[in-house]
């Protein structure tokens, strides 16, 4: 299991990296953390002819947390950095809750948020979180830059809206409203494995404990993150009850499209997606009420 030959270029700046990608297009791949790309190269399932190493670029790394405005995370920010950022954890509890579910410490020491999003594994946690948190993604090429909503970025399994000359450079997260509670839960065979089903749930209450917004996004149960937030319309303008939560979970179960795998049947995925939804919504609701 050794990778096929390729030409390696260490990019020295963002502009350099983008110029290289523009030159080599689909033939080239960016090497970010490499924790998904390198295994596929070792299996020779991926055979880029040019590998552009962007680990030496500081411009697209780091967390810029804002008290009022959006928070910006550089695409090359490693999980390890996110994990150790107490302010980020406080601002986005979902991220704090999901990070330990992502592989293992050694992988998180190298793996990057942007690399993970661009890999677009449907069972991966971060794409679902990006959608749940209404992230905006900054995409750059050597000639232009654009912003895209995370919900529009994922097009299918391992497929994104990125063009051959583009790079994801920044993930922008809008601030959560007050009285927003969130919860991430997943079922995997072993801790750190990709999710059989995972769900990011968010509930926002007004001062009377009436639900004024909720988000529900799944990983592992479709070709890409499944945004089932429409199911939470049942909550709108109501005080959330256990029954309403069960009803939302049942609705959401019909909005996902699990494919089954060697680890779980599609029926089981759908079943536990419902169970997790009930539990995650219950916890998110509680946290919103308790101001956590």
């Amino acid at each position: 299991m050794k990778p096929a030959p390729f030409k390696y270029i260490a990019a020295t700046s963002l502009a350099h990296a983008l110029a290289l990608k523009s030159e080599h297009g689909d033939e080239a791949k960016f090497l970010a953390g490499g924790q998904s790309l390198m295994p596929t190269m070792n299996f020779r399932l991926a055979r880029p002819t040019v590998l552009i190493d962007i680990n030496g670029i500081d411009e697209v790394s780091g967390v810029d947390l804002s008290e009022t405005g959006p928070t910006c995370i550089g695409a090359m920010t490693r999980y390890r950095t996110l994990e150790r950022d107490a302010r980020l954890a406080a601002a986005f509890p979902l991220i704090r809750e999901a990070l330990p579910e992502i592989a293992h410490p050694q992988i998180r020491n190298r793996g990057t948020l942007g690399g993970n999003l661009c890999h677009a594994d449907p069972a991966s946690e971060m794409p679902a979180l990006a959608v749940a948190l209404r992230a905006r993604l900054k995409i750059q090429s050597s000639t232009q830059r654009r912003w895209i909503a995370a919900s529009d970025f994922f097009l299918g399994a391992l497929t994104t809206d990125l063009q051959p000359d583009e790079m994801l450079t920044t993930i922008e997260l809008p601030p959560l409203g007050p009285r927003t509670g969130s919860c991430f839960m997943e079922i995997a065979r072993r801790r750190g494995d990709f999710a059989i089903a995972g769900v990011a749930a968010m509930v926002t209450l007004d001062d009377d404990d009436t639900c004024i917004g909720a988000r529900l996004v799944f990983c592992g149960v479709g070709e890409m993150p499944v945004d089932a937030s429409d199911a939470t319309d049942l909550f709108k303008g109501e005080a959330i009850s256990d029954k309403a939560i069960r009803d939302v979970a049942a609705l959401a179960q019909n909005m996902i499209d699990p494919g089954g795998s060697v680890h779980a049947s599609a029926d089981y995925q759908r079943h536990v997606a419902g169970v997790l939804t009930e539990r995650a919504l219950t916890t998110a609701h509680q946290r919103a009420r308790d101001g956590q």
Binding site: G34, Q35, M38, Q106, R110
Partner: peptide, 26 residues
């Protein structure tokens, strides 16, 4: 050689990483 077993873990600038998922040139 696909980053699961951890036997090849070394420290890179003090942090554990899988040496099978890094290129020597890196």
């Amino acid at each position: 050689e696909h980053g699961v077993c951890g036997a090849c873990t070394v420290l890179l600038d003090g942090e554990p990483v899988r040496s099978c998922l890094m290129l020597a040139v890196q």
